[in-house]
Design a protein around this nucleic acid. Sequence first.
RNA 1: GCAGUGGGCGGGAUGACCGCUGGCGUUCCUUUAGGAAGGUUGGAGGAAAGUCCGGGCUCCGCAGGACAGGAUGGUCGAUAACGUCGACCGGCCGCGAGGCUAGGGAAAGUGCAACAGAGAGUAAACCGCCGAACGGCUGCUCGAUCUUGGUCGAGUGGUGCGUGGUAAGGGUGAAACGGUGCGGUAAGAGCGCACCAGCGACCGAGGUGACUCGGCUGGCUUGGUAAACCCCAUCCGGAGCUAGACCAAACAGAGUGAAGUGGUGCGACCUCGUCGUGCCCGCCAAGCGGUCCGUACGGCAGAAACACUCGGGUAGGUCGCAAUUGAGGCGGCGAGCAAUCGUCGUGCACAGAUAGAUGGUCGUCGUCGAUGUCGCUUAUGCGAGGUCGGCACAGAACCCGGCUUACAAGCCCACUGCCAGC
RNA 2: GGGGUUGUGGUGUAACUGGCAGCAUGACGGACUUUUAAUCCGUUCGGCGAGAGUUCGAAUCUCUCCGGCCCCA
Length: 113
Amino acid sequence: MNQLFPKRYRVLRGEDFTQILRRGNCAADGMLVLYARASRSPSAPRLGVTIPKKTGSAVLRNHWKRLIREAYRTQREQLPPGFDFVVRPKKGAQPNAAAIRRSLIKLAKRGAG
RNA sequence: GCAGUGGGCGGGAUGACCGCUGGCGUUCCUUUAGGAAGGUUGGAGGAAAGUCCGGGCUCCGCAGGACAGGAUGGUCGAUAACGUCGACCGGCCGCGAGGCUAGGGAAAGUGCAACAGAGAGUAAACCGCCGAACGGCUGCUCGAUCUUGGUCGAGUGGUGCGUGGUAAGGGUGAAACGGUGCGGUAAGAGCGCACCAGCGACCGAGGUGACUCGGCUGGCUUGGUAAACCCCAUCCGGAGCUAGACCAAACAGAGUGAAGUGGUGCGACCUCGUCGUGCCCGCCAAGCGGUCCGUACGGCAGAAACACUCGGGUAGGUCGCAAUUGAGGCGGCGAGCAAUCGUCGUGCACAGAUAGAUGGUCGUCGUCGAUGUCGCUUAUGCGAGGUCGGCACAGAACCCGGCUUACAAGCCCACUGCCAGC
RNA sequence: GGGGUUGUGGUGUAACUGGCAGCAUGACGGACUUUUAAUCCGUUCGGCGAGAGUUCGAAUCUCUCCGGCCCCA
C-alpha cells in the first residue's frame, strides 16, 4: 500500500488555496473544517492544510498540521479521487489522531458528493 | 541535623514499521530543461521565544558640521559594539553568607508638595511665654494751674486692651532651617562660648580613579524632588534579507520637469498678501527633482537614451543562504583578582524549509507519583516484582553578542546562621 | 518580518498638571400602580492587567512581563 506523501499530492500555490476556499464545497464537524473542489488533474486527490494563528502556539499548530497530514497519508486510497481538499481545525477542538482520521474520511465524502 | 545564601549541570535512552526534507553517488525515462526508482548520509533549542539593546551584512553615489529628537549616566577595565560583563567605590537592607542600587548636577534657572497645620521655602506668630519699646485704661506720689476736684506734666506700679517682642515648649505633617550644656535676656534665639554632627574651601597621606583617612579653617547650617522641565558629559545618518542582485513571464499607457529665482513703479481686491501690468536685472545653474530620514545651512552627483507622479501588469525561478572562514567550539600553556585576552594544537564540525521538512504508530528500559502484594524488620524503614497515570517550557526562517521571560524530575559545588555531639 | 494602539465595578466610559477613583447602565430594596413597564428614592457589588522601582505619596512617572485589537508587506 502506497503511503507516500510527495509534493504532487499537496496544494502548494496560494492561488489554489484561495480558489478552493472561495469556490469549493464546505463540510464540517466538531473536529475539522474541510473544503473540496474538483481538481484539474483528475488522478490524485491533493491536500492543503491551513492552521490559523488563533489555534495556539507554534508547537500546537505544528502538531495539528502533522496529525492531519498523517491521517491523509495513511488513508489516501479511501478518499474520492479528482478533488482538491483544504482542511483546517475546528475552532475549540483538541487534536486527537483517531478522531481526525475518522473525521477526514467522512467529511471528504460529504464534500465531494 | 535544621534553616538559608550564591552559582552551575541537566533537558530521558533505545528498537521496529510507515513517512517528510537537504547533500552525494547509482540506474531508468527524456530533444533540452527535467522527471521517476532505489541507496547512503545529515535534519530544532537552552531558551530556537519576547523583540528589549548592540553589531555584522545589504541598499540609499559619499555618509558633512549645527539645531531639533532619542538614548545612556559612580570609577577603572573588558569587548566588534552595547543599555552587556568584571572588579572596585558610595548609599540602603540583612545577625550573617549576601542582596538591591537610572548612583552626574538642587550654593545656573523655572516649577511642584494634596490633606492636616499658625507656618511648606529669601520660613511662619495658633496656643503658650514676655512686658523691654510706643499707645490706651487705671492706682499712688510729686509739681503746675485754677472753676477745689478737675485739667496738664513728671516719676513709679498694675492691667495684657491695641501696636509689639519671642521659634525655648505644645500641637500638625512624609518633611518645620542642626544637637547637648553653660552664659545671656523682659522673655527668648548660634545672640555668645564649649563639645558633637553635617557641609564647603584649603593642606597632607594612600589609590590609575570613584573615593578613603587625618589636619586646619570658615560660613556657623546652604531642606526634598531632575524615572518634573532643565543644565552638563558621552553616544546615535536612514531603512531593513519581502535588505538587495539577476532571469523569465505579463501588461496600457498618461502626465510633469532645466527660467521668472530677484529688485522696483502703478492699478485691483478686505490688511498681511495675492493677482494683473510696465521697467531694471538675470537666463548652462541662486531654479528643479533626488530615503545625505525632521529643520535651515552646506556639500554632492544628475538630466529627455533621464527623473518623478498617477495608472496598469507580475507575484514564478536562481542567488543572497548555510563551517569553507566565522567577534566558531574544545584542549594545553601564558597574562590578569576577574570579565577577558594572547599563543599553540585540533577534519572537533555537516539543519536550511518556502502553504513552509525535522513527524506518526507500537514496543523495551529509565524516572516520578498513587495504589495494593511478598520478604526482612518492634515501628520507622529497606529490598523485590505488579497495576494505573505522568515525564516540562517550547519549534529555526539572514547571521552573531547580550538582556528578559518560560521550564518536569533529578544532580553537583562553595558559603552563612543556629542547635547537638566529639 | 516590521509598526501602532489599548487594558479602570457585570457592561460602556471619565479622571493621567502625581494627592480621599467618579459617571451612566445593570443588580437589590422601597415608593407609585390591580400587575408589569416607565418614573422617583435609597443601598449594594466593589474595579486601575501583573510584578518591581522612583517618590512622603503612583491609575498617572520609569522598567520588565501578560493579554486584546488594528495596520503594512
